[in-house]
């Protein structure tokens, strides 16, 4: 393997509900930032998309930062398949020789990326939260990939000096996407691919919706979040959240104890959120939790323990019992809403 033959940053673009998923757009933004920070490499941002889609979807990849879009097109691909996507991805790796491949760490990305990395016998770093080129050698294309481990208690910076491509999956919600710019020029490379020789022994029989109570807290402007100390009293958070027009979040401890469903979990093993206001109630602030919420615009913490780590990341903290304070907040807002003037 001649490492110097490999170039550019490739972003695997995932389509969800007829759109390029945000997690992929974020990676296009991050890839643009990386190539702009090291112009001496002359690297381009290449978006890779596999399937059968409308042209406007392909355009979005360019509008959000790709210099080139490789579209592997086959009308027979109407659903993700590990084997078909891996085989087609491998053809691109063999043919185009990407130096860096970024894949969103979604359920799909975490199914596909390890398979591709193992097939081409390269290294793969999972769930990265920070990317940089080698800070010690300003000409180097070596990627420094930082990721949390041990439940967010420890961070590691990982490198792959011996194999190419350098592959990593990246946690959704961490990188920033660029503003959509419809005037952007980019190259469209549409390849009609053959899948008739690929053996696919897995098929999707049915798609089921989760019960309609499932929530997406990542879209909320305000999150009222509770820890293990809330116990069976999450209804108190829910009432308060409802009054504010907020969603309810939770720490891993509260979810593990079964006080609230997993959909609500914020943190390293839950969701990464960055709402405008995050209200942490009875959450001690384990590193694993902080990893998922510390980028919130404004953090309010309520905890009985004045030494709780959550106060370290909060903009304002209140030492007290959340179960006492929350109903008072609900009352206060209600009174405010019903004021006569």
């Amino acid at each position: 393997m001649n490492i110097a033959d490999y170039k550019d940053i490739y972003v695997f673009c995932e389509v969800k509900d007829g759109k390029i998923h945000d997690s992929s757009l974020e990676l296009l933004g991050e890839a643009s930032r990386l190539v702009n920070n090291r112009p001496s490499l002359g690297y381009k941002v290449v978006g890779l998309i596999i399937g059968n889609y409308d042209e406007h979807l392909i355009d979005d990849i360019g509008y959000f930062g790709a210099d080139k879009v490789i579209y592997l097109k086959n009308e027979g691909i109407n659903h993700y398949s590990t084997e078909i996507f891996t085989s087609l991805f491998m053809d691109v790796i063999n043919n185009d020789k990407p130096d860096i491949i970024l894949v969103p760490a979604t359920v799909l990305g975490r199914d596909l990326a390890p398979r591709v990395a193992a097939r081409c016998d390269t290294g793969l770093t999972a769930d990265a939260t920070k990317l940089d080129f080698d800070p010690e050698n300003l000409e180097s294309p070596l990627l420094y990939v930082t990721r949390p481990a041990f439940g967010g208690n420890l961070f590691g910076t990982i490198i792959n000096e011996t194999k190419r491509p350098q592959m990593t999956t990246i946690r959704p919600g961490v990188m920033e996407k660029l503003k959509k710019h419809t005037g952007r020029q980019f190259i469209k490379d549409i390849r009609n691919v053959d899948i008739s020789t690929i053996k696919d022994s897995v098929k999707v029989l049915e798609v089921l919706q989760k019960d309609h109570m499932a929530v997406d807290i990542t879209k909320a402007d305000i999150i009222v979040s509770g820890g293990r100390g809330i116990g069976d009293n999450f209804h108190i958070l829910e009432e308060c959240a409802k009054m504010m027009g907020a969603e309810v979040g939770a720490s891993r401890g509260a979810v593990d104890k079964g006080y609230i469903k997993k959909d609500h979990q914020v943190g390293q093993t839950g969701k990464t959120v960055r709402p405008k206001v995050y209200i942490a109630c009875g959450i001690s602030g384990a590193v694993q939790h902080l990893a998922g919420m510390e980028k919130s615009d404004y953090i309010i913490a309520i905890n009985k323990d004045p030494e709780a780590a959550i106060f370290g990341v909060a903009n304002i903290g209140f030492v007290g019992d959340a179960l006492e304070i929350l109903p008072l907040i609900t009352e206060e807002i209600k009174r405010y809403r019903e004021r006569p003037f």
């Binding site: 016998d121 390269t122 290294g123 793969l124 770093t125 420094y144 481990a149 208690n153 420890l154 961070f155 590691g156 910076t157 990982i158 490198i159 792959n160 000096e161 011996t162 194999k163 590193v287 902080l290 953090i299 913490a301 309520i302 004045p306 780590a309 106060f311 370290g312 990341v313 909060a314 903009n315 304002i316 903290g317 209140f318 030492v319 007290g320 019992d321 006492e324 304070i325 929350l326 008072l328 907040i329 009352e331 206060e332």
Partner: peptide, 27 residues
């Protein structure tokens, strides 16, 4: 192929006002 270049723990910055108030005033 992947090597750990370095490991570190996160430093937590103490930057907030932590208030000791009664429940009603906090709310």
């Amino acid at each position: 192929p992947t090597k750990v270049k370095k490991t570190f723990t996160k430093e937590v910055h103490k930057n907030s006002d932590v208030l000791h108030l009664d429940g009603k005033t906090s709310a």
